[in-house]
């Protein structure tokens, strides 16, 4: 069974810090990393391949430098990768992004399962996975924490909920989004890294996908960002002093005063 994993290159969060004086965002370095949740998707795809055979293909939409992220997933053992990149894709919201990725999936060809990370750590929307499933009209389960059974036709999974988990069975082909708990991603291999250096990663734009400019990027988006600002932070940091007892007493009286407790 072929598995398609969707990956996104995101800015490394550790590089994002707040300047305490000006309350603005400082982004150190421009290093792009693979969205951490997508690594669990890649790992799960590789495990399914080891069990059922077939190939794992990685798909990403992004600027040309997202090629790096795809090469990196090849080093972990993914068989092939495709980058969807076009100036026309810029400014896409989740609707336009899922439309574009769904077109990419169709062009990649036959598959049994699509796996996405639960969400990307830059946007945190968790909407692209379900959007792709909807476009392709296939069943979908979000927040999968465990694959209990998988065959070439059906899949039984545990979906993480706020108060526990649900067990669901879906027919294949399907799409799942995965949470961290599902597995522990492997390390890359040396042979994988060597392959990653030379592998051909095709780049598909609007003409390759056969999609119009109206459907993608900002033009194909339903939402628009109209304002970006830094949030108000608690500027009232207070270090309590004195013995443990004194510090605790001060804390309790402060919290009491604020009607927090």
């Amino acid at each position: 069974m072929n598995v398609i994993v969707c990956v996104k290159q995101v800015p490394e969060t550790t590089g994002v810090k707040i300047n305490k004086d000006t309350n603005t965002l400082i982004r150190e370095g421009t290093k792009g990393i693979i969205n951490p949740f997508d690594m669990y998707a890649v790992e799960e795809g590789l495990r399914i391949k080891e069990k059922l055979g077939g190939e794992v293909i990685a798909l990403s939409m992004g600027p040309p430098q997202a090629d790096e992220a795809l090469r990196e997933v090849v080093s972990y053992g993914v068989d092939g990768a495709v980058l969807l990149s076009d100036r026309a894709f810029a400014g896409a919201d989740t609707l336009a992004t899922s439309r574009t990725l769904a077109k990419g999936v169709e062009k990649v060809g036959e598959f049994g399962l699509i796996i996405c990370g639960k969400q990307a750590i830059d946007g945190d929307t968790a909407q692209v996975g379900p959007g792709i499933a909807e476009r392709l009209d296939i069943p979908y389960v979000a927040f999968v924490r465990k694959i209990r059974e998988i065959s070439n036709h059906t899949l039984v999974v545990e979906r993480m909920m706020d108060d526990g988990y649900d067990v669901l069975e879906v027919t294949l082909p399907a799409l799942i989004t995965v949470v961290k708990e599902i597995n522990e991603p492997r390390m890359p291999s040396l042979r994988g890294k060597m392959k990653a250096k030379s592998v051909d990663i095709p780049v598909w734009g609007i003409s390759e996908l056969g999609i119009s400019e109206e459907e993608v990027g900002l033009k194909g988006s339903a939402t628009q960002v109209i304002k970006i600002f830094t949030p108000q932070r608690h500027g009232n940091r207070e270090m309590l002093e004195g013995s443990v007892e004194r510090q605790v007493d001060q804390l309790v009286s402060r919290l009491d005063g604020m009607k927090i407790i």
């Binding site: 609707l95 909407q127 959007g131 927040f143």
Partner: peptide
Amino acid sequence: RSFIPKVSARLETGLTAD
């Protein structure tokens, strides 16, 4: 967060998460 994105995608409208 699981099913609302499916609805918005089917309606081809915008959804802002969280």
